[in-house]
């Protein structure tokens, strides 16, 4: 492998390592769960992204074979990481944050963690009525 390819690959690996480390350090340092959620998003984006770019360069420039696996990993990560973060946020909010502590949704309906979606409340009402009659 040529010198400049090696330098380029190492550069991306080091960048990825730094961001992975800062992300983990953030998990330790930050104090509440909502703040801690920000740390893994960094690790999955630039941390993993750097390794994937390095891998693509290594195979593309060094071994002259194009590899699409890195691209797929990126796509799958970008699809799944926000969903996990959202689940954690919602669970934490439902258990530890009262609706009064949040800014108002400025609409008829409150936030979905605490309030039923439109139509749901009436449905429940009809169901209760039906059950009451039987």
């Amino acid at each position: 492998m040529e010198m400049y390819t090696e330098i380029l690959v190492s550069f991306f690996l080091v960048v990825a390592g730094i961001f992975g480390l800062v992300g983990s350090f953030g998990m330790l340092k930050l104090t509440d769960t909502m703040q801690r959620l920000h740390a893994p998003t960094k690790a999955t984006t630039l941390g993993v992204g750097g390794v994937l770019i390095a891998s693509m360069l290594y195979f593309g420039l060094g071994k002259a074979q194009v590899s699409f696996h890195e691209l797929l990993i990126t796509i799958f990560l970008f699809l799944t990481a926000p969903v996990t973060a959202n689940f954690i946020a919602k669970t934490y909010m439902a258990r530890n944050i009262k609706p009064e502590e949040l800014p108002a949704s400025e609409r008829e309906y409150g936030w979905a963690v605490y309030d039923d979606p439109p139509g749901r409340a009436e449905e429940d009402f009809h169901e209760r009525e039906r059950k009451g009659r039987n």
Partner: peptide, 20 residues
């Protein structure tokens, strides 16, 4: 997803009618 993937912001929840 975009809001969560850009570090510094995490989308927490939607309004119950999906308009905020």
């Amino acid at each position: 997803g975009t809001i969560t993937m850009t570090p510094g912001t995490v989308s927490a929840t939607l309004a119950a009618d999906g308009q905020a």
